[in-house]
Design a binder for these strands. Structure first.
Lengths: 187, 187
DNA sequence: CTTAACCTGTACAGATCGGTACATATAACA
DNA sequence: TGTTATATGTACCGATCTGTACAGGTTAAG
């Protein structure tokens, strides 16, 4: 009944959704995994969709920390951060628990742009993109919006490719490309 | 009973899978959409997975034509093709029927790398990537493998971003980035 | 101890899932 | 026309889906 109990449910559900997909994971499965009763589960989350949204909100916070906070720690100037973001990305991809991006997968399973799950996924991506654009602007890039968007494309591409091909070389290729783009935009 | 009847089933199934997802689409739905009986459907395709694989094979051929053949038509030198591939990409994205990449979505729903659906998706991506690497090599790029992979990242990123944000600006950003990368690799 | 508010587990509802049994219709050939 | 092979439609199977009704247990106030 405590908040931490609910947090625990979200954690476990996130793990299963992330690994096995949203439609493929039934509430019965989650009830079994968490050990809670179905009634209690539905007391915490009115519908399966509510539970999915809760996991996505948690994932959003987690990735903000994993990507943005780590990048800020790594580098102390905007220009360096544009590159350091790709080190954070590689840590994530090579970290062992990587299974592509939960929001890309969520938007694949809930494609209607008006669907809350699709919208929260778009919001997540926009936040990351805004961060890159802000760094590009602070670094006095020639076209900060374009540069930020392009770096975002590289990140997304690396995520998808790493998931499909395995390995973390995609992150290296992305970083090398980012260095070229950033150098060209700051020259 | 003819081959064309089966092709028609694949076409219709592809459309629904592409728009609504694989797990979210039941065989009953496909039977209703195609107007065929369930028995006949299962005579053509032994399982739902067989049907999915058939749609993916068809999609693979279609995209090969849409991306590679069109790019070859557009440009007559390897260096130009590396850029022209992004015009083909934009045509696809801006074409109105774009709903992200079916293989990215398939690999999201069937994540086990050993699963046939995941494998066919990886094969598809590898084919496109090999094409870009081959063009980069023919253009005497400094590091053709890396360049090809990087351009592939941009394409994947543009696909995912266009799906999440809507619009086709991602394709423009990707093309502009490709121009910078190609110029740097050929200089 | 009694009563009332809650929390939990189980069993189930109604719908849909992938897949099949079987009876009928249609066609090909004798 | 009679017979046989195949194609189709329907009705159904057991399992699973999301979500709920309800009975029994637990706790706290009076």
């Amino acid at each position: 009944m405590t908040a931490s109990k609910k947090e625990e449910l979200i954690d476990k559900a996130l793990e299963v959704f992330y690994r096995e997909g949203f439609h493929a994971t039934g509430m019965d499965r989650l009830v079994a995994v968490t050990g809670i009763s179905k009634t209690s589960m539905y007391k915490h989350f009115k519908t399966k969709e509510d539970l999915i949204l809760a996991t996505l909100e948690r994932r959003h916070k987690y990735l903000m920390s994993l990507i943005i906070d780590r990048t800020d720690e790594r580098a102390d100037t905007p220009a360096k951060r544009l590159i350091a973001a790709f080190d954070s990305l590689k840590d994530w991809i090579a970290g062992g628990r990587f299974q592509s991006c939960m929001f890309i997968k969520a938007s694949s399973e809930f494609q209607d742009p008006a669907h809350p799950i699709h919208k929260i996924s778009a919001d997540h991506k926009r936040t990351l993109q805004d961060y890159l654009v802000a760094q590009a602007r602070a670094a006095n890039a020639r076209n900060p919006e374009q540069l930020g968007h392009q770096l975002m494309l590289l990140q997304e591409g690396a995520i998808v490719t790493a998931h499909l091909q395995g390995g973390s070389e995609a992150a290296d290729d992305a970083k090398a490309a980012a260095e070229v783009l950033v150098a060209a935009a700051l020259a």
